[in-house]
């Protein structure tokens, strides 16, 4: 079991399969909140669902309304189980806090591969 320690953006525990991208994500307009599927044209993850995944991406982008989109996804059960960022910014940080989704950053995200089983617990990421 490999462990990586990051900075806690929002506390708590989350477990799931990793979904990894090297591209920033815009939750407002870029992800369908009803299904959790990435809909941004040309995005690496276009067509894939973030639902219940540990979503690994460098940071958020786009409109600040994206924080509310994450909240909406959490309420409809389409949100990721956790988020790992290279460098978190306002939209994702605020989204994680108001939606209570475990989130860590300052982690080398190149160490993760899509499909790996991952657990986040209070800032510590464990590959299982």
């Amino acid at each position: 079991m490999e462990q990586l320690k990051g900075r806690i953006i929002y506390k708590g525990k989350g477990e799931g399969e990793a979904l990894v991208t090297t591209q920033p994500i815009s939750f407002y307009g870029g992800v369908d909140p009803e299904t959790g599927i990435v809909i941004e044209k040309g995005h690496e993850l276009e067509g894939q669902s973030v639902k219940c995944k540990i979503l690994v991406f460098p940071q958020g982008k786009g409109s600040t309304v994206g924080s509310y989109t994450l909240y909406r996804m959490k309420k409809s059960g389409t949100a990721p189980a956790g988020m790992i960022n290279k460098e978190c910014e306002t939209i994702i940080a605020v989204g994680a806090i108001i939606s209570e989704i475990p989130c860590v950053d300052k982690i080398d995200i190149s160490k993760f591969k899509t499909g790996e089983k991952i657990r986040i617990e209070n800032g510590v990421v464990t590959k299982q």
């Binding site: 909140p33 600040t64 309304v65 509310y68 909240y71 909406r72 996804m73 309420k75 108001i98």
Partner: peptide, 16 residues
């Protein structure tokens, strides 16, 4: 405070 239009907030924003 921005984020006032229901068009952008949706039901989840309203709930928050």
């Amino acid at each position: 405070v921005a984020g006032v239009s229901y068009h952008n907030l949706g039901d989840a924003g309203l709930e928050f």
